[in-house]
Design a protein around this nucleic acid. Structure first.
Lengths: 338, 338
DNA sequence: CTCAATAATGTAACTAGTTACATTTAAGGG
DNA sequence: CCCTTAAATGTAACTAGTTACATTATTGAG
């Protein structure tokens, strides 16, 4: 049986009583010490110290009507894809005095809704959600509560919420056009799960639209290095002759890269490979990975400013488009030396 | 000028008035609808819908004395190292109905303290901190508030707070002993910043203690693939003959691996390489990376359960030791085929 | 020494919920 | 039709702060 000293937390009235002043004075000691006399100040502060008093955040929040945090609903924390985004988001929010609660949805709209509900219940002042396909329940919740909410990873000015992200179609076009420009004719496309992920679906669709004379074949994989490697292995095992593997995530591309190396395939001579996102690590792979830069950290910063501004000044932001750009490196370019 | 419909949020009393019942009844509709008559229930629910009423989290918290979230202070979100940890932490906390706020410290004790302070101010019920070296101010804050706090990444039963983590010394020993067993004599050690990072310092120190006949040389790098590659390049540029590169993080090892490949160095014949952490991706690199498994995801799960239990049942947990183990793969083992 | 101005502090109402206890209403039995 | 009992609802006090306004104390000038 554990000994438990269940002496409940001291509150403001306890402090007031113990130091022989009124609650108002204690509150002043906390919030505007300059208006309190030296003598009273030190006395009250001593009592605060003795009673180990910490003001209740909830009681403060109830007065200010503010909780000072926002929630971000992202598919997963399991790989590096969202690391840069979260880093940008968190640091920019901090500048506005906002904290960040991260919740993962596993790309499941039901989970997304229930976590959004929870975030609201604990008082989130704003929300970041991924993509523009969500459960009816979530859409309704956001609408009902008028909670400042921004959809990321998908630029779409038509969407009923402000979006901050890249143009998924444009990024797919950049990729396919690059592969065309280096003369690819048969390309294996490795992409993440399309179920409940509109970003991926849109990109795949756009590739399809723009394939032109390039023959494309699609392979779905989980977003992980392991899965990228496994899928590349399957691609190599098929008899077809591929010119390139296009991975719709750098994480997948890294896995595929390792697998090609394992099979002693010359890159890009025998097989080109390119990724998407342009994670910081992609510039250091061997060979260095060509990738479409989606500016994920930027996306974090931009969505944080937009959301913070919305919360502080009640100004609903416009959607923000991040321009995707191509970083050509060795995995698609013969001539590029180290 | 933005038009602003600043109609303030409806509260429980508004709902009560609008539906002609008492506040208690509205509260019942919210919390125990079964004791409310069918008729009243539907009427009040309709009003709730109309007024777009959402109960204030703060007001609830003030009554329950609960905020239902904990804060985690980790060095960075910038790479995959903490991804598995956070994933485990978040999902396990969710099982106890707790949410997670993530804040990054950049390994700076000052930032760590101020963010801890902020987390407390907004009502965190518990804290996760990294390592066992912290600013006086933070130690004092935790002590003063008696806030359930767990230190991770460092098993140390002597520490004044419960710790959940691996034995950093043991993990270093596992690494050096493995390198000894495969006959290494000169090893380049690549490690993250030691400033304010006791995990790294301890490991480096233990390597030093256990080097025996192995000549060790230390290289400090930022924790990133890029930095791992850059440091490997510098190591190769030095004239010395190395048998192996030991990276105290898989992220660094991955970078080093790429760099060795770039220099056409046979692994492990010309140079062995090993990492630490055993990230999921390490099993898929080429060649597959030998690594000391630190069970980071497990650490997330274990610290979440311990913290949740502490918060719920006021039982201060014992420190939990996670056993580090070695996963020998191709980067240190000649005979291991694919 | 008196008075006005200012500084310091106190009182009580307010924030938005929950809940113990009291009261009203309805239903069923005799 | 009255009475008991249970169900439904209401009243008011409570949670822990902030703050407008009122009051008291202090200071300096005249």
């Amino acid at each position: 049986m554990t000994t438990r000293i269940e002496k409940k937390r001291a509150n403001l009235r306890d402090v007031a009583k113990a130091s022989g002043v009124s609650v108002a004075t204690v509150s002043r000691v906390l919030n505007s010490p300059s208006v309190v006399s030296e003598k009273t100040l030190t006395r009250v502060q001593k009592v605060i110290e003795e009673l180990r008093f910490t003001p209740s955040a909830a009681a403060r929040a109830i007065n200010s009507g503010r909780s000072r945090f926002v929630g971000a609903l992202i598919p997963t924390l399991d790989n590096a894809i969202f690391a840069g985004f979260l880093e940008g988001l968190e640091s920019q929010l901090a500048d506005s005095g906002l904290s960040l609660i991260v919740a993962t949805t596993n790309d499941d709209p039901e989970i997304e809704f229930s976590k959004a509900q929870e975030l609201l219940n604990i008082g989130a002042e704003g929300l970041i959600i991924s993509g523009i396909s969500h459960s009816q329940a979530l859409e309704k919740l956001v609408d009902r509560t008028q909670l400042p909410t921004i959809a990321i990873s998908y630029y779409d000015p038509q969407y009923h919420l402000p979006t901050v992200g890249y143009d998924n179609r444009a990024s797919a076009r950049i990729a396919i056009e690059h592969l065309r420009s280096i003369g690819c004719q048969r390309v294996a496309v490795v992409h993440g799960p399309t179920l409940n992920n509109d970003r991926t679906r849109t990109r795949v669709d756009e590739l399809h639209q723009n394939a032109g004379l390039i023959a494309l074949e699609y392979f779905e994989a989980d977003i992980s290095v392991q899965s990228g490697a496994k899928t590349a292995k399957a691609i190599l095992a098929s008899d077809k002759q591929w010119d390139a593997i296009l991975c719709l995530s750098d994480v997948l591309a890294t896995g595929a890269l390792f697998e090609l190396l394992r099979h002693n395939i010359r890159i890009p001579e025998d097989m080109a490979i390119m990724g998407m996102e342009d994670l910081p690590s992609s510039a250091s792979t061997y060979p260095r990975l060509t990738s479409v830069d989606l500016q994920v950290r930027e996306m974090g910063v931009a969505s944080a400013s937009a959301l913070a501004n919305w919360i502080e000044h009640h100004e609903r932001p416009e959607s923000i488009k991040l321009e995707a750009s191509l970083n050509v490196r060795q995995t698609t370019a013969l001539r590029l030396k180290d």
